[in-house]
Write a protein that binds this DNA or RNA. Structure first.
Length: 901
RNA sequence: GGGCGGAUAGCUCAGUAGGUUAGAGCACAUCCCUUACAAGGAUGGGGUCGCAGGUUCGAGUCCUGUUCCGCCCA
């Protein structure tokens, strides 16, 4: 009988979480129902599918992961509970640059470089590294409660996905959508690889604008003043451009100027691109090291001179500066030009410096031979899919961002000069020079049959394989049962920061390779910042480690905080205070559960007669039904946070604060009252746990297990319709019953009782009457007398009154003397606190209240006399009339009492 | 330069069916260890919802303009 108290007073998440997760996984609950590989599979049932945003295989958990796991697990658990066949495909990403850097760093500690090891050995080491660290992130994701089907876990470099990458590359190549050639790209000198436009970030930094002379080749006395932010690029200049209508320089067009120091003659050209207002109005053109200059050079057929080596030193084209680092060269060259009398002036200037997203080094625009995807045709299809509504982006405002990017997209540089990744499936023939592009490793050139072929050294951008993720993980290019049934997936959930990197590319590739949008909805969450809204970073030292948070406050607390504290697409500031509050919530749920278990233990196992519901029973039931409807509506609109808040509020401020308190009295009555109270407690708690489960899976599962066991021991009468499911994770999602018509009145009546109780408590506090001191009271309830009489016990208990000295009346013509009076919603309450009555203080208090009420009366009379009465919908007007009537009643009572003083 | 978001209580934020006295958590004040829970309970103080217009019977919520902060793209 002491069963509930065998549960600890405080919810002990540390002893629960691991055990529960292991149980779920071992029981196969993460696997989809209606599995297409099983014989009784029904292909007509539509599944709900999410592909996980694959984290870096050797990475470690951060709050971004915690966020997407919480969101996606919520969606998955909700659909699973609704009975939908549900699949969440997990996996990891090889993360080319990041992983390679980790391994290179480790090698450096041994005094080794990857070049010393050679490609093969380096890859062997990297795989070993992956084996060693690859399990960490997935274990951490499990720790968050992720209910993904680990039997379907994939890795971007595993065999199937590598085949998908080959297939995709070859198909694009065959369609003419992949080409190789020299183009302007972003070069990362530290990593010695090309990176895509997206991997470059621009930061405003103080710098210098250098003004100098471009002397005319045929007359050293004349010069064109030119300004630049990067003097070293002068070495690669192949023209000076001026605006065709610029009178200052018109005469020079067609003549030649001399490159400083090198004295190489280059033409002066006219181009409309030149901004006459900027600098001197004359622009030096370095086609090989500036994207805009590159465009101009193409138009004018200018020579392109590369002046940099792969590690951004000056190459043989730099004459005397060959071998110098780019920044050293800048300094030296400027000094030399000053000595040569070519310097005009320097001026402070804010630069827009292109930096590598990874590592932050300054990237150099450079012409380089790389592989590109001709993106226009893919982008067009991806645009249409969203425009036509085949894919919906939540929140909607990001569709505009998506359009804007795709409408202005440039070809995608997909080759990387790295070793860790999918090697480009292209072989060059040493004899005929032709290339062979193949799904399988060829042994002979496809053109001349020579066996002297060698594979392209480069690997593909990691995002190339990520772009195939929703279908490659399901078996594509094979036509597998999984692919047939689970593709297209349902929702793609991720942070808005990778909308272009990943989401847009998946849409392009999905449409291109499968002919279908890879998902129907994109849900974007915001970024997580610290309490002050600062980006978390190691240098700032404001990083919150989700693992530590889970250790201290439990997974449920962290999940609930992330889910309820955020709104779609908006950044959230995470504070540990909030997590703490939600840990307290989990504890509240736990303790409410302990109470219900106790109630169950002491209640009769059977009813003797049909139920006679109390006001509190009806009220909590009606409120639960409203909650179910609201939550359903909010979930449908992806407003998970708001749904969570509403469940929280219902559970704490209605169920726990009010219903449980009244239930204690009802249980004490024994008999049928106790039976039906226990039943209501059980039902409401059961429904609440089901609603909460997608948010806080651990505490709800654990508690629900105890609840189920206790109810089963008690017998049939405490079973839900359809019986108890095996586990909460696969239990039915609660659905609201149709409205029966009585609900509103019961809710209104209960609210009135609450108001009266609060008013009495309020006055007691004001008069410093401690709860321990039970006092008599008289309540004059008018037409609500019956309601109040029925609630006498509850009112007495919750307002700390003497139950046998609680008088309920319809009217009280003779106002009692020496009593403190309160009026709330037209109800009069008298408390015989004679010794505390101070006539003057009472008068002041009553007058204050009267003034407040009269203000409201005036407001409402004005409102009802305005066009509001005709134009607003009748129910709204009626509501206001009711309010007015109540206020008027209250005012009348207050006046009586003032007179009576 | 273009686009987007934010501005609501001391702090961090909700408020996405426009409905008429604006909510939560934390913090603060007073009281209470009443056998579900002190990680709790009761009560209270605290906001002209950035600013200016407009639409509407009614605006924190819709429209226009504007200021400040932040982000994305060029």
């Amino acid at each position: 009988m002491n069963q509930p108290f065998s549960l600890p007073k405080t919810y002990d998440f540390a002893s629960v979480e691991e055990k529960i997760y292991a149980h779920w996984e071992a029981s196969g609950y993460f696997k989809p129902s209606n599995d297409p590989r099983s014989p009784d599979h029904d292909p007509s049932r539509r599944p709900f599918v999410i592909s996980i945003p694959p984290p870096n295989v050797t990475g470690e958990l951060h709050l971004g992961h915690a966020m997407f796991v919480a969101m996606e697990d919520l969606m998955i658990r909700y659909h699973r509970m609704k009975g939908v066949p549900t699949l969440w495909v997990p996996g990891t990403d090889h993360a080319g640059i990041a992983t390679q850097l980790q391994v290179e760093k480790a090698l450096a500690r041994e005094g080794l470089s990857r070049e010393q090891l050679g490609r093969e050995e380096f890859l062997r080491r990297t795989w070993a590294w992956k084996e060693k660290y690859g399990g960490i992130i997935t274990r951490q994701i499990r720790r968050l409660g992720a209910s993904c089907d680990w039997s379907r876990e994939r890795f971007t470099l595993d065999e199937g996905l590598s085949r998908a990458v080959r297939e995709a590359f070859v198909r694009l190549y065959e369609k003419g959508l992949i080409y190789r050639g020299p183009r302007m790209i972003n070069w990362s000198p530290g990593l010695k690889t090309a990176v895509s436009d997206l991997e470059v970030e621009y930061s405003e930094e103080p710098g210098t604008l250098y003004f100098f002379k471009y002397v005319l080749a045929d007359n050293p006395q004349e010069y064109i003043p030119v300004a630049t932010t990067r003097p070293e690029t002068i070495l690669g200049d192949t023209a000076v451009a001026v605006h065709p209508e610029d009178d200052r320089y018109r005469a020079y067009v067609g003549r030649k100027v001399l490159v400083p120091i090198l004295n190489r003659p280059i033409p002066v050209i006219a181009d409309e691109y030149v901004d006459r207002e900027f600098g001197t109005g004359a622009l030096k053109i370095t086609p090989a090291h500036d994207p805009n200059d590159y465009q101009i050079a193409l138009r004018h057929n200018l020579e392109m001179i590369n002046i940099l080596t792969p590690d951004a030193a000056i190459n043989e084209n730099g004459g005397p500066y060959q071998g110098l680092d780019r920044f050293e060269c800048r300094k030296r060259m400027w000094e030399d030009m000053r000595a040569a009398g070519l310097v005009i002036k320097e001026q402070p200037y804010t630069l827009n410096v292109p930096r590598s997203q990874r590592g932050g080094e300054i990237v150099e625009p450079m012409i380089s031979t790389q592989w590109f995807v001709r993106i226009q045709p893919l982008a067009r299809a991806a645009l249409e899919a969203v425009r036509e509504g085949r894919i919906k982006i939540v929140p909607e405002r990001f569709t505009k961002v998506y359009y804007n990017w795709l409408e202005n997209i440039e070809d995608w540089c997909i080759s990387r000069q790295l070793w860790w990744g999918h090697r480009i499936p292209v072989w060059y023939c040493d004899e005929c020079g032709e290339i062979t592009v193949s799904r399988d490793d060829p042994t002979h050139c496809a053109h001349c049959q020579s066996s002297h072929i060698h594979q392209d050294e480069d690997v593909l951008d990691t995002w190339f394989s990520s772009g195939l993720w929703p279908f490659s993980t399901l078996g594509w290019p094979e036509d597998t049962p999984d692919l047939r049934y689970f593709y297209p997936t349902s929702v793609l959930e991720t942070g808005y920061d990778i909308l272009f990197f990943w989401v847009a590319r998946m849409i392009m590739f999905g449409l291109e390779f499968t002919g279908k949008p890879p998902f129907h909805t994109v849900y974007l969450h915001g970024l997580i910042r610290d309490e002050q809204g600062q980006k978390m970073s190691k240098t700032k030292g404001n990083v919150i480690d989700p693992l530590e948070v889970m250790d201290e406050m439990g997974t449920d607390a962290l999940r609930f905080t992330l889910l309820v504290g955020s709104t779609p697409g908006n950044d959230m500031n995470l504070s540990l205070k909030k997590v703490e509050a939600n840990r307290n919530f989990a504890n509240k749920v736990w303790n409410a559960g302990r109470f219900v278990l106790g109630a169950l233990a002491q209640a009769p196992a059977q009813a003797q007669a049909a139920p006679q519901w109390t006001l509190a029973d009806s009220w909590i039931w009606a409120r639960l039904q409203q909650l179910l409807r609201d939550v359903e509506r909010l979930f449908t609109n992806y407003q998970y946070g708001e749904a969570g808040r509403q469940i929280y509020d219902f559970f704490w401020s209605e169920f726990a604060d009010w219903y449980v308190e009244i239930a204690k009295l009802q249980l004490a009555e024994g008999g049928d009252r106790a039976f039906y109270t226990a039943q209501t407690l059980l039902r409401v708690l059961d429904a609440s746990l089901r609603l909460l489960h997608p948010f806080t899976p651990f505490v709800t599962e654990e508690l629900w297990g105890h609840l189920k066991r206790a109810a089963q021991e008690k017998g049939e009468a405490f079973s839900p319709k359809g019986g108890w499911e095996e586990a909460l994770i696969i239990a039915r999602w609660p659905e609201a019953q149709p409205v029966e018509g009585w609900e509103e009145q019961k809710i209104a009546d209960f609210n009135l009782i609450q108001e009266v109780i609060r008013a009495i408590r309020n006055l007691r506090t004001e008069k410093k009457v401690t709860p321990g001191k039970r006092i008599p009271a008289t309540i004059v309830a008018g037409e609500k007398l019956t309601v109040f009489q029925q609630q006498a016990a509850a009112i007495a208990a919750l307002a700390y009154l003497q139950p046998d000295h609680l008088t309920m009346l319809a009217n009280l013509p003779e106002k009692p003397e020496n009593q403190i009076a309160i009026v709330v919603a037209g109800i009069e309450i008298y408390l015989p606190l004679a010794d505390l009555v101070n006539v003057e203080a009472e008068r002041a208090r009553l007058q204050n209240e009267l003034a407040e009420v009269e203000k409201q009366i005036e407001r409402l009379r004005g409102l009802l006399a305005s066009p509001f009465a005709e134009k607003a919908p009748p129910p709204v007007v009626e509501k206001e009339r009711q309010k007015l009537a109540t206020f008027e009643e209250t005012a009348a009572r207050l006046r009586d009492q003032l007179q009576n003083l």
